[in-house]
Computed example of a mutant assay.
Amino acid sequence: MKPLIVLLSASERKYGSSSQLLHIAAEGVRDAQGEFEIVHLSDHTIKSCIGCASDEEKFCKYPCLIQDDDFNMIASKLIQAQGFVIATPVYWYAPNGTLKHFIDRLTSLENMIDHAGKSLLEGKVAGFIAAGLDSGVMMAISYLIVALNSMGVHIVPWSMAYTHSQDPTEDLQAIMDAYNVGILVTKTARIFMNSEPVGYEPNVDVGRLKRKAEQIKREFEVQRKLRINSFEFSQ
């Protein structure tokens, strides 16, 4: 079975720099013997998150409560896939608004840990592409890494590519990096397909861990007092 990688483009400009690099990543997926589907968020309606989890956690689950847009359909593609690559233009040092709405709505998949025992993104593999100026590319990618890792997604080493150029064909480093994003996400996804699931363990003996934490605190308090005494002795 070949890994399925969703290539998610956030740009309103399908011909823009981030979209061009995403197609280079597709070459990497293909050469790594994976399958891919390109999804343009600009072809779909993604409404903003309504924050139902802040009212009661039980309301935040997949499928999302918002039913009159395309989020649940696109999210189902991520659930079925083994990995994904997200490409975004940089708008004021961050991903664009459409992608931000989409990431916020992915909370419905992550929150399934409270309903089904695991995040529906757990075990997926992700890579990232950004196009923009200055430090904005790294700020946008860093945001995506932190958000998705917090949802249970594996972040692959060297899984980012970025360009400051409006013509990425002139940015050979970005082309090479984007190609490797596709390869590395695909190869890592294949490894996880054939291995024991690795994820967050919610069913733990919290009482035992709390007692252990209190024991550690007492032991460290002894060390702290000995250190303070050494300061007083040296005066």
Rank of each mutant, 00 (worst) to 15 (best):
C49L: 05
H101C: 09
A10S: 14
V198I: 14
C60S: 14
I145T: 09
D167T: 05
L22H: 03
Q215T: 14
L226C: 01
Q173I: 12
Y143L: 01
T88K: 02
F71Y: 15
G97K: 05
H154F: 15
S159V: 00
V29C: 08
M176T: 05
I86C: 06
L99P: 02
A94F: 11
A126E: 00
S142H: 14
K47L: 13
I46Y: 11
Q235F: 12
P3V: 00
S48D: 13
P168C: 02
V137N: 15
V29Q: 06
F220G: 09
C52S: 08
Q67C: 04
A174V: 08
Q215E: 15
H23I: 02
V146N: 10
V29G: 07
L109I: 03
G136H: 01
Q33C: 13
G83I: 02
A161W: 00
K210N: 11
L109N: 10
A178C: 11
I79R: 06
E37G: 02
E27Q: 12
L8V: 01
P89V: 04
F220Q: 13
F102W: 09
I46S: 14
F84A: 01
G34H: 00
M73Q: 13
G16R: 03
I50G: 01
W92Q: 11
A81Q: 06
V204W: 03
V198Y: 09
H154T: 05
Q223V: 02
G34D: 05
A130E: 04
I175D: 00
L121C: 00
M193E: 09
R105Q: 01
F36K: 06
R224Y: 10
G97T: 12
E232Y: 13
C52P: 03
P197G: 07
V6D: 07
V206P: 03
M176F: 08
I24T: 15
K77Y: 05
A147K: 08
V181S: 00
K61L: 09
F71C: 06
Y91W: 09
S42G: 12
A189Q: 13
R208V: 08
V6T: 10
V85C: 05
I5S: 12
M160T: 12
L148H: 08
D114N: 15
N72C: 03
V85T: 10
I183K: 14
D114V: 08
E170F: 03
N149T: 04
K61W: 11
K124M: 07
W92L: 13
R13K: 12
L4S: 13
K77S: 10
F71N: 08
S195W: 01
Y93R: 12
M73L: 10
P168Y: 04
E122Q: 14
G207C: 03
E56I: 06
C60Y: 11
K225N: 06
I145N: 04
A32V: 04
H40K: 07
S9P: 00
L133V: 02
Q67T: 15
I216W: 11
L133M: 12
S18M: 09
P197I: 03
Q223A: 15
G51E: 09
E12R: 09
Q80E: 15
S165Q: 03
F128M: 01
S9I: 02
Q173E: 15
S195Y: 04
I79F: 07
H44L: 04
F233C: 05
K118W: 03
K210A: 10
